Amino acid sequence: MTQREQAASAFDDLHARHAAALTQQTYLLTGRPRLARRAVEQGFRLAWQRWPQVAVDPDPAGWVRAAAYEYALTPWHRLCPGLRPARKPRHFQESEPSDRALLEALLSLPAPYRRALLLHDGLGMGLYETAAEIEASTPAAAGRLTHAREHLAERLPELGLGGQEPVRQGEILRAGITGLAAAQQVAPGAAQCVRSGSERSDLRTTLAAVGLTGLFALATLVMMIATPDHYTPSPDKPLATAPHTRLSPAPRHGADIRKQGNAAVRKRLRQARLTPDVR
């Protein structure tokens, strides 16, 4: 068996053991079976694209779950009516009369609170592990969990959460959430289809990156060819073809007038010395 065949076998085994349960959990997170299947498929696609990293992860199923939950709660799904998280469950299968009320109460929670509650009380994860998966501090995760339980206790008093210790509240909610998830028949896609879809998506991404790089290089080459390699002066500004000729300064009229007056005075004095005095 080649290395690729071994990786495909390990991936298929991971998918077979966890895909169905993960799809049921994601349905409780979103209330939409189509979005739940798509989110889980996307999580496994990313896992196959990064399989060397996922294969050595201490919890490969947790890696896929985190990727699926992130995709399911992406805000841009609100722009697509078919993928928008529901306020009321779609295609819901009841196992108990109170199941619909519990799911509607879960969907009424803010998405970060709902995710923390499903991880901690639904899957039985510890508080520290829950905080790490939702990328929050431990006090923040504890606060979300407390507010979610208070909301459910107020909305569904028949659950008996009011006045109970936190540990007992977690036990009650885990039993209810586990039964609710098990009743949902949301079938995931086949592992082989997930792997082939992941490879096609990876190929399209590579081709798109190569195409954009080639387009950028072509645009750069066209600009280099079209741009002249020397400076052409503007026709509105002729070049100077002769050196500047220094012009004599303009005559200062005041000084010339004074010189002319002094010459006239000297002339009269000479004439007076040559003419005898008349007594």
Rank of each mutant, 00 (worst) to 15 (best):
A111L: 15
H18A: 12
G124K: 03
D121Y: 05
W76H: 08
R246E: 12
A116Y: 01
P233E: 08
D236A: 10
V64M: 00
L102W: 01
W48L: 09
S95I: 07
R270Y: 06
R144H: 06
G261I: 12
R34M: 11
H147Q: 09
R32T: 05
G214F: 06
L221M: 10
T26M: 06
V64N: 01
A55C: 06
Q49Y: 03
G160F: 07
L83S: 10
G176M: 04
L22P: 04
S98V: 09
A116N: 00
S196E: 15
G211C: 08
G254H: 10
P52G: 07
P58H: 00
V40M: 06
G122H: 13
E94A: 14
P52I: 05
S9Y: 02
A72S: 13
P238V: 15
G261R: 15
V278D: 08
E158C: 04
R149V: 03
L215Y: 09
L106F: 01
Q93G: 06
W63Q: 10
G179A: 00
G43N: 01
C80T: 15
Q24G: 10
P228L: 09
D236H: 15
E199N: 10
Y128T: 15
T2C: 07
V167K: 07
Q260F: 06
A140I: 09
T26K: 05
S248V: 12
A68N: 10
G189E: 07
S248Q: 12
L203E: 13
A263Q: 15
A36V: 04
D236G: 12
L152P: 00
S98Y: 11
T245F: 12
A183C: 10
G122A: 14
I177A: 04
R168E: 12
Y113I: 07
D99M: 14
K267Y: 10
A7Q: 11
A208I: 06
W51T: 04
A181P: 06
L123Y: 00
G82V: 12
E199I: 08
L22A: 06
A86L: 02
P157I: 00
Q3H: 10
Q93P: 02
A39R: 02
W51M: 03
S196M: 14
A116W: 02
Q93V: 12
E94D: 07
T26C: 08
S95Q: 11
G197S: 14
S196A: 15
L247K: 12
G163K: 05
R37M: 09
L173A: 05
H15L: 14
Y71F: 14
Q271A: 14
G126C: 00
R4H: 11
T178M: 07
R279L: 13
A217W: 13
V265P: 01
A263H: 15
V194H: 13
P85V: 15
E154P: 07
P110V: 13
L117W: 05
S108K: 06
G214P: 06
Y231V: 09
A183H: 08
A250T: 05
G211T: 11
A142Y: 05
Y231R: 12
P188L: 02
V64K: 03
A250H: 05
R204F: 14
T245V: 11
L117K: 04
E129N: 05
R155P: 02
E129K: 01
A141E: 01
G43M: 01
A182H: 08
A272R: 09
V40E: 03
A67F: 03
S196Y: 11
A187D: 08
A255H: 09
L247Y: 10
A153Q: 04
A219L: 11
I134E: 01
E104S: 00
L161M: 00
P60A: 07
A16V: 15
A240L: 13
D12P: 03
G170N: 03
